[in-house]
Every structure is written in C-alpha cells, then in structure tokens.
Design a binder for these strands. Structure first.
Lengths: 124, 124
DNA sequence: TTATCACTTGGAGTTGACTCCAAGTCAAGT
DNA sequence: ACTTGACTTGGAGTCAACTCCAAGTGATAA
C-alpha cells in the first residue's frame, strides 16, 4: 500500500507518516524498485499502534525508545513492559485530571443553564 | 497572597503565572503600593480554574476568549455556555481515545507478562 | 548603609510535534 | 516525446505553551 492510501486510511498526513519513519517512530518501510514506500500489513499495524499511542499524548521520544527496544528482540521484553506500565500510570493520572475537568465543566454549564432559566422566569 | 505562595500552592511556575496574566488568561491581579501582586481569594479561584482547564488540555486561546466574555458581564452567558459545551464535547472525545489507548496498553502489558511467564516455564 | 532577596518588566529562547517547501525522480497517459 | 501527478529528500518554518534572561525596584536584615 502506498503512502497516500495509508494517509487516507488513518487520517495522518503524508508529511507526518514520513516524519515518523525518519525519527524512528516507525521502522523503515519497504520500497519498490523506484524507491517508493510500499506499506505491508505489519507496517499498517505499526502505524495504527503509533496513532493510538499519540492520540493519548504519549511522548514521541518514549515511543521511539520503545520501538528501538522492539527491534532488539526478546531480551528487551522486560524493559518494554516497564515503559508501557509507566505510560499507563501517567495515562491514568491524565484521565483522572480530565474527569475532574469534565465535572467542573458540567457544573459550570449547569450554573449557566440555571442563570438562563432565572432570566426567563423574570421575563415571564 | 504573593506570587511565590500561589506558585507553591498550585504548582505553577512564577513565570507561568505572570504569563497567564499577561495574555489575559487571568484578569489583572491587584498590586500593593510597590507594584507587587497580591492575589485575592477570587484570583486564587481563577488560577485554580485555569489550572484545571489547562490540565485537561483546553487551548489557551479558547480560555482567553472565555475569560474575556466573563469580564463583559451577564449578556455573554449564552456565549460562555456555548464555549464550555463545545469544550466538553471535545474533552469527551479525548477521554474516549484515552480509554482506547489504555485498553491497548493493558492488552500489550498482559501479552508481555505472558511472554515472561512462558520463558520461566521453559527454564523450570 | 549596604547587601540580600523577592519581586517587577519586556523580550528572547526553548521544546515538542509537526508542517511546509524546493528540487528532483519515476511511471503512465496523450 | 512530453506532460502530469504521485512520489522522494533534506532542510527550513510554524505553532502552542511555556521558560529563561537581564536589568531594575523596593523592603528588610546585618
């Protein structure tokens, strides 16, 4: 699969896909004889994984380190697990903060609804 | 309350507190006769609100607009409610993405746990 | 009174993550 | 043969959100 189709399928820009590969966030993709990227099924899985991780805000440098470890084989499984566990902890913290923000937003919106209601009562 | 104590209490740097005020994310804080900021209870509430919103990633320009509307009084209540509702929608989307990422992380970590277990079995 | 220290300002610099650009290559259609 | 269009590269530019810096001020302690 060529880069344009990958870009379309995952809604990631061409530039970003090439950028990810350049910095090692995705291992080098195979090329045809004229040097054009041809994404394999495995490449697509990798793109999907990175998209998922990035969408939650996992930092690029951490993901680059993780991908580097994967390349080194089974002896890095413990290290990889450690990275993912650490990121999971941080994600849980962020989700908790977001829940608090959501609570705050819900509260404020409700206050505004009531303010509007009160005005309507005054008018009628 | 002086800026150092506010910084300490909310874990926001001095520079960031001043930056927030400069760009209008927090209305001007009162000063004593020598020009030093003296945060009131209301100022602290505002700092806390902004910290909460920022911790969930609400963009600064949106918050600046919101704070500007608050300054303009009750006639902007509908507009403010609109902003908060829009941000709430986006927050829900982000939380959903994070949940998916969390599921993925949990799955991967479990796979690694099993890989380690399998190795241990081989050894024993 | 002199040094220290927390504060002030305007402006410049940094960071992370893209995003854009110019110049070049290749395969396919007219 | 020539044009078009999708691809390639290295490198520069952008953006949001800080973060740092230098120079200055005023209150307090030795």
């Amino acid at each position: 699969m060529k880069i344009a189709e990958v870009s379309e399928r995952y809604d990631i820009s061409l530039d970003t896909l090439r950028y990810y590969e350049r910095i090692g966030l995705i291992p080098p993709v195979n090329r045809n004889k004229s040097g054009i990227r041809d994404y394999s099924e495995i490449d697509l899985k990798r793109v999907e994984f990175i998209k998922c991780m990035r969408s939650a805000g996992l930092p690029i440098d951490v993901l680059v380190e993780y991908v580097g470890l994967v390349k080194q084989g089974d002896k890095t499984i413990e290290a990889r697990k450690g990275i993912l566990k650490e990121q999971r902890e941080q994600l849980l913290v962020k989700m908790d903060e977001m829940q608090k923000t959501l609570d705050m937003l819900n509260y404020k919106i409700e206050v505004y609804e009531n303010a509007v209601l009160k005005k309507e009562k005054e008018i009628i």
